[in-house]
Design a binder for these strands. Sequence first.
DNA 1: AATCGGCCATGACAGCTATCAACTTACGGG
DNA 2: CCCGTAAGTTGATAGCTGTCATGGCCGATT
Lengths: 244, 244
Amino acid sequence: MPPARANDHSGADVFTDMSCLHLPLGLPLEEIPELHDAETFTLLRKDEVLFEQGTPFAGLFLVRSGSLKQVSTIHGGDPLVMAYAMPGDLVGLDAIGQNVYPGTALALETLTVSVLSQERVSELGAQVPELRQQLCRNLSQEVHDERLMLRSLLHRTAVGRLAYFFVAMSMRFRRRGYSPTQFRLALSRSDIASYLGLTVETVSRTLAHFHKQELLKASGRDFHILDLDGLIRLAESSGRRGGR
Amino acid sequence: MPPARANDHSGADVFTDMSCLHLPLGLPLEEIPELHDAETFTLLRKDEVLFEQGTPFAGLFLVRSGSLKQVSTIHGGDPLVMAYAMPGDLVGLDAIGQNVYPGTALALETLTVSVLSQERVSELGAQVPELRQQLCRNLSQEVHDERLMLRSLLHRTAVGRLAYFFVAMSMRFRRRGYSPTQFRLALSRSDIASYLGLTVETVSRTLAHFHKQELLKASGRDFHILDLDGLIRLAESSGRRGGR
DNA sequence: AATCGGCCATGACAGCTATCAACTTACGGG
DNA sequence: CCCGTAAGTTGATAGCTGTCATGGCCGATT
């Protein structure tokens, strides 16, 4: 655990580790100068939307502080929590397919982002062609990781899903230079449940179970991982469906 | 609510949108001449592998006849069926992230593919820069669709998952110009189960259920959809997890 | 300070599905 | 033609988890 600090842009090739379980579309492309010295900061308060599902692509956003969730609604059904973005994550990349944002980005708390407008993105893409390629690669990589994660979640029980979730979160925080064992998630239980395909009650019960097993202590939205290896073990083995 | 329009992706129903649920990485990019007059055909018999998980990217493959499945193994766990490719599908695109094939491609029956070697791909990418972009877009699109599908599958019961599966298959066949109500899948029940995160028994029972309801008749690997609308209704509503 | 409402936890119960097991069917080889 | 193995089906059972209902906790508003 590198004793990194809050606004850590060190971006030193973080991707050497297969970036397993990289939930949102976060990229280590913070070397883009435009993202740093930009006075193009935006501030949002809780529950304010950064962009809405279905609106045309307007730009990318780098989370500076706070966090947001991305939710997609199918068909007027329930909105599904698709991703959680924390400081350092780049948001909006998944709009490149349709030139439309596939989900609504909603601030979970006071949030500041720096904006990379569409024009700026195009410019950059033209100026530095390898950037586009790099972006594409990273997107592809992330998205593939997530696909794998989702497929294995399909085969896992609630215990396995939540273990997987916290292991993933732990890795993300570690990568960002924060403590991998103690962190705060702005997501509600309900958000977590939606994200994992469970119900609030099951999430609650499973957290209580983890607590009893001395694996993870949750109080409100603060989490303290006591036995990461135990969680990893659960995440890997605790699937019950379609074993073989 | 914004006047949802072409932004369907979200709003509009997932099924009318053609590209949704496009299980494998199939692209309509058959305009590439190299793919047509290529004498670079390869023939594989059942159970032979086209490429193995973890091997470096060597090229793309266009399925000409037969079909294959792509399976990924995590951690020495059970192999998961990730995708099913039928004639017209382009396979191997998901290797661009890591330059490594993320899964093993296995022929489900006698299979012919035309090969687009890595060099050829690079050449083409250089010659026609918009091709690369197009490819990237399509990949992104597909992968996002699949992400949405997987997330909603997480919230669905066996009935919902299988209904979803067959509706998706129906769409794919329709897109390819085949009958959307009668088709043959080379996938075994076990493959389908793995693909959907269920067990063989549940798949079997659910198919029997569909049969009784006059929704879908399955005999062996031949499927005959009797009530597509009914299946769509099930696919959309038959989720039980995390309602709100 | 009191109240209201959202979030969270917990219990009871029912429904769904994995598991185990037995059986049938399909298919390929001797 | 018979048999052996794999694939598919069906049944019984147990376990997990969704649903419904209750109560506590906390923050926000009055």
